[in-house]
Simulated assay, not measured.
Amino acid sequence: MFKLGNFLTLTTFGESHGIAYGGILNNFPAGLEIDYEEIQHQLDRRKPGQSSIVTQRKESDKVQFLSGIFEGKSTGTSIGFLVPNENQKSKDYDHISEYYRPSHADFTYDKKFGVRDFRGGGKSSARETLNWVIAGSLAKQLLPKEIKINAYVSSVGDIFCEKPYQDLDFSKIEDNDVRCPDAETAERMISKIKEIKKEGNTIGGTITCVIQNVPVGIGEPVFGKLQAELAKAMMNINAAKGFEYGSGFCGAKMKGSDHNDIFNEDGTTISNLSGGIQGGISNGMDIYFRVAFKPVATILRPQNSINKDGEKVVVEGKGRHDPCVLPRAVPIVENLAAFVLTDLYLIDKLRKI
């Protein structure tokens, strides 16, 4: 069975144009008073139709809890949840029932399973991520309140937020449609996305995530390293193409004498090129990482492709699609990070019982 997590685990079901999406969360501790409003808030940040630079599919994305919660508190049994699909337009995909869209999962799903749900990509649709947002926003409620997780759009195409995260005000992330806390850079990003959308094209970029006030000791040796678990979760996001933490790929160009984080007497470090993780275990410094996202594969212009018989065809996207995944991916990154951190946090607590 394929799942997210090691101790705290999530399994999911649903397709983009099916009746509903949903999931089952196992090993969630009993006795937590559930903040329903926060869960819905995170879903609202991810849902389609919230601005002119995202897909205009209209979904309320209201979560329904089926089990594991009684009188507002977790019971310790499996938490089941469901989100109905309300605004499917399957006819928008009739023209690709026999065609393979370039850089989509159409070809690989068909060859692997011998059948595919071509309506919105079926299980390969990014709509699956609403399950992860629900699970992550639930999991985050188990973490100590002082732990803060903030993600933001740090680049769109060749437009970069040049300020280091330490100089940004994370409270301004929600002040604009692109979710970049630097107002001037955000305006340029939004203009670029609108320009690309008018062309019938798409564009990619990066999201930076910062996790602060994590206690020392979260993460497991060898196969449960904190950065490895974060990378696995992030690379499961649709359109994710790269992950780096700390100094990342820039660190590969440095000398050890420049890269090593020198200790202060209290165990903190003068620099933080390790990205808050050493030996796969949190060291108490800020954890920061970046995820690269490719341009959305569906473009509203003709492309050469093939059909199921290997014959050459021309494919053109129709319907409602994101010109850029980044604004809606911000809450996905945040809540997946929360899920990973909570899973490892619970494992650490169990060891100390």
Rank of each mutant, 00 (worst) to 15 (best):
F7S: 00
L8G: 02
T9K: 12
I19R: 14
G23R: 02
I24D: 09
N26C: 14
N26E: 15
A30H: 10
E37V: 07
Q42Y: 06
L43I: 00
R45A: 11
T55Y: 11
Q56C: 08
R57P: 04
E59L: 05
Q64N: 15
L66C: 10
I69F: 03
G72M: 03
G72E: 09
S74P: 00
S74N: 04
V83T: 09
P84V: 07
K89V: 15
K89N: 14
K89P: 04
S90L: 04
D94F: 14
S97W: 03
E98R: 15
Y100Q: 07
R101P: 04
S103A: 14
A105E: 06
Y109W: 13
Y109S: 11
K111F: 12
D117A: 11
G121N: 10
S124T: 06
V133L: 02
S137W: 03
L138D: 04
A151W: 01
Y152N: 11
L168P: 09
L168E: 09
C180V: 04
P181Y: 03
D182Q: 02
R188G: 09
I193C: 08
I193S: 02
K194R: 12
T202W: 05
I203P: 01
C209S: 01
G219F: 13
P221N: 10
G224H: 06
A228S: 15
A231N: 05
A233S: 14
N236I: 08
F243I: 11
E244G: 11
C250H: 15
C250A: 15
M254P: 00
G256S: 12
G256A: 07
I262S: 12
T268E: 00
L273A: 13
G275I: 00
G275Y: 03
G276N: 00
I277Y: 02
I277C: 01
Q278E: 15
G279S: 03
G280F: 08
G284T: 10
R290W: 11
L300W: 09
G310L: 00
E311H: 13
V314M: 14
G317K: 08
G319C: 01
D322W: 08
P323N: 09
P327R: 02
V330E: 01
P331R: 02
V333R: 02
A337Y: 08
A338G: 08
L341H: 07
L346P: 00
I347M: 12
